[in-house]
């Protein structure tokens, strides 16, 4: 194999190089995190107490800044009393990788603190349902409307200027309103995800539809296709692979609205779990929950990407 020039512009990589770099993109951040966590010389601005010695206000497992700790040790030694013992530690909000890894497992098997509270998997399932309904309702209206906007100029002009305005309004700003209208449970959460997705969706789908090669519609016209047939038999199938790609991207955006949405009304789902764990400073659980969201998001996208190959075997730009 000839030597590859890594930095030639717009050049495809070999499959092997792609895989290796793809794995590295995950390994490198974890490596940085591990170095910060496990090499005591790197950062570690605090001292975690193992033995308070003679100092009455110190407790085992308490963390204090290194400077004051050294002062306390000197003071105790000067007075001839037992100095406190401790080891360098990072702040509690940065748990080590192994702690988060074990939390990923224990968070699922640890029962909730009280019986009426949900298990982690129940919280997650609740979140997934909220996302699903928000995204489904948005797509059920947004995709047809977007396609119509892309296909017919009058519908586009009648819709898009207002949608363009509305998409700048931050979805969470409608939280209080949504609660007033839809109550405190899942209604307002689904509404926030809907608002966050819908307006972008209409514009993106409309743009995608407009990009359909005009020569295809002209060819269909010369073959005798009527107006409605043009829409159903040329425009829709013609843009379908691109619509599907758009929806995958939009689904990712819907996830980013999840946390804000779940804070509205009664906190629920994965957000409830995260806020609970953060309150008790179980940051390894917080990280675990965040990572789970990432895994679900990436996993869904990979599955949808593989399905795309099945659905659209003719699609050349697809991956």
């Amino acid at each position: 194999m000839s030597r590859t020039n890594w930095f030639s512009v717009q050049t495809e990589l070999s499959p092997k190089a792609k895989t290796v770099l793809g794995i590295l993109s995950f390994v490198l951040p974890i490596l940085v995190w591990s170095i910060v966590s496990y090499v005591p010389a790197v950062w570690h601005p605090l001292v975690q107490i193992t033995d308070p010695g003679s100092v009455s206000y110190l407790q085992v497992d308490m963390r204090m800044p290194r400077g004051p700790f050294e002062d306390v040790v000197k003071e105790a030694e000067a007075e001839g009393q037992a100095p406190p013992q401790g080891f360098p530690a990072n702040p509690v909000y940065l748990p080590a990788p192994h702690e988060v890894a074990s939390a990923l497992y224990t968070a699922f098997v640890t029962p909730p603190p009280s019986r009426d509270m949900p298990w982690l998997h129940e919280s997650l399932w609740h979140s997934i349902q909220v996302i699903f309904w928000g995204f489904f309702l948005s797509s059920a209206i947004g995709v047809p409307l977007g396609v119509l906007c892309g296909a017919y100029a009058p519908i586009s002009r009648l819709t898009e200027p207002f949608v363009e305005f509305f998409r700048y309004l931050p979805a969470p700003a409608f939280g209080a309103l949504a609660v007033a209208i839809l109550g405190i449970y899942d209604g307002p959460k689904i509404a926030i995800i809907f608002i966050g997705t819908f307006f972008q969706q209409v514009l993106i789908i409309a743009n995608t539809t407009r990009k359909l090669d005009g020569a295809l519609t002209e060819a269909a016209l010369t073959l005798g296709a009527g107006n409605l047939q043009l829409l159903t038999r040329v425009v829709v199938p013609g843009v379908l692979p691109d619509l599907y790609r758009d929806l995958r991207i939009l689904l990712g955006w819907a996830w980013t609205y999840l946390i804000v949405a779940e804070l509205i009304g009664t906190t629920s789902g994965i957000t409830w779990f995260i806020t609970q764990q953060a309150r008790y400073q179980h940051f390894e659980n917080v990280y675990a929950a965040i990572i789970i969201i990432g895994i679900i998001g990436l996993g869904t996208d990979l599955v949808l990407g593989m399905l795309a190959k099945r659905f659209f075997p003719w699609d050349r730009n697809g991956k």
Partner: peptide
């Protein structure tokens, strides 16, 4: 047409 206008799907 000059360009290829077969329906790719």
């Amino acid at each position: 047409f000059q360009g290829y206008t077969l329906f790719p799907w």
